[in-house]
């Protein structure tokens, strides 16, 4: 039987041309403080932490950050971890491409989590703009990880185009509703050859476990940890759920049955009925 260490060594997570040491990606938004966020990162050792690109605030010019401390910028504080910039807040392919190019310059990385939002109320992604942006960014040498609907046709198009992974949502961003359409994710697993990282809407450890049990390759979690009553404890629970769910997927679950099947033999019963 494989030990947890053997499994980790044998079950490597390949993304693009790299092998990652974790299947967990963490967001950096909505934490009660930078200190709590860093403690969560320390406990989980995520493969990536996501960051958004924003205009430098006027009051930030002196290299200080009121949320942080001791003249460190936000980036200084998170840069011990591998940052994955995103294009959050972009509404068009043009803006997303521009944001990705700025992120590449600022962070010296060609990896980008591509988001193109199509609706202000639901924050659901715009598939049409997403395809346009992904095509242009891949042509420009980016490693693209698109945040998308749990739509197998769209995911296949993104994969065929050359995206290094697809990032279907579990539920709307920040909703914590958990996986609304497990069968959709299972279909993406079956018909899509690139890694799947479930993004958005995961609310707690069991949601993460289910994503991994469905065969997804990783998860990106932000609000579920940041908004938990005890974020550090939730971070630990979610890291454990990633491992647990992955092991269960590899182990292969038993077939489901409509009705009961006794696990104890009836032979030798002391009753005659």
């Amino acid at each position: 039987m494989n030990s947890a260490r053997d499994l980790k060594e044998q079950d490597s997570f390949r993304l693009g041309n790299e092998t990652l040491n974790s299947r967990l990606l963490l967001g950096t938004g909505r934490y009660p403080s930078i200190e709590v966020m860093l403690k969560c990162f320390e406990r989980c050792r995520p493969a990536f932490v996501t960051v958004a690109m924003r205009r430098l605030p006027q009051n930030d010019h002196k290299n200080s950050d009121k949320k942080g401390s001791k003249n460190q910028s936000f980036f200084d504080m998170v840069s011990a971890y591998r940052c994955l910039p995103n294009t959050a807040g972009c509404w068009t392919a043009k803006d997303a491409v521009m944001t990705a190019q700025l992120a590449r310059e600022a962070l010296s990385t060609s990896w980008i989590k591509l988001e193109v939002i199509g609706d202000r109320e639901t924050l659901l992604p715009d598939g049409e703009q997403l395809l346009l942006a992904a095509r242009e960014l891949i042509k420009d040498g980016f490693h693209v990880l698109p945040y998308c609907l749990d739509d197998v046709v769209l995911c296949r198009k993104l994969a065929d185009m050359g995206c290094v992974a697809v990032m279907p949502l579990a539920a709307p961003i920040g909703s914590g509703l958990g996986i609304r359409n497990p069968h959709g994710l299972a279909m993406i697993r079956r018909y899509c050859q690139v890694p799947i990282i479930v993004d958005a809407g995961l609310g707690t450890a069991s949601d993460v476990c289910l994503a991994m049990e469905l065969g997804c390759d990783g998860v990106l979690v932000d609000s579920a940890i940041a908004l938990a009553r005890n974020p550090v404890m939730m971070a630990e629970a979610i890291a454990a759920a990633v491992t647990s769910g992955r092991r269960a997927y590899l182990a292969g679950r038993m077939p489901k049955r409509f009705s009961a099947q006794a696990s104890t033999s009836f032979e030798g019963l002391i009753t005659d009925t």
Partner: peptide, 25 residues
């Protein structure tokens, strides 16, 4: 690119964006 900041000339009426990473999901 950063290496070109010292040699890129700005002209009247141009639009400049200065960005940095911030917290985000």
């Amino acid at each position: 690119q950063r290496d070109d900041w010292h040699s890129t000339i700005l002209r009247n009426g141009q639009t400049i964006e200065v960005v940095t990473p911030m917290a985000g999901g």
